[in-house]
Nucleic acid binder design. Structure first.
Length: 107
DNA sequence: CTCTTGACGCAAT
DNA sequence: CATTGCGCCAAGA
């Protein structure tokens, strides 16, 4: 009965990301028990339409806004991040090393 | 079944 | 940081 779909597990982690922070597909994949499924995470995000899902806090391992193109508006993702206090330059999070949030460290 | 593609990751250069 | 090559897994043609 506790059979959650891959997508649900992904959403669960994404919703845990605090403001002013961001996490990567790889971190999420490991957090839900699929250490090598980073690619699937990305595919799920591309399909997600949930308005309450802070997808803008999900980037790749380098802190690059790889999904900015799927937000409908070109720089909506960057706008949202900057709105939370995250500095973004050229589709990349500045100081990513300090901004990245590791769910495995919090759970 | 094979081939391609995808909001990816990582090591080497 | 940019590029290249390889790995990984699922869905569609």
């Amino acid at each position: 009965m506790d059979k959650k779909t891959f997508s649900e597990l992904v959403y669960e982690i994404v919703r845990m990301v605090p403001e002013g922070r961001a996490t990567s597909y790889g971190f999420i994949a490991r957090a839900i028990g699929f250490p090598t499924a980073s690619r699937r995470v990305g595919k799920v995000m591309g399909e997600c339409d949930l308005p309450d899902l802070p997808a803008h806090r999900v980037v790749n391992s380098q802190g690059i806004l790889s999904g900015r193109d799927s937000f409908g508006e070109p720089d909506l993702m960057q706008k949202r991040l900057e709105s939370e206090g995250v500095e973004v330059v050229n589709h990349r999070i500045k100081n990513w090393k300090s901004i990245c949030w590791n769910p495995l460290n919090e759970i």
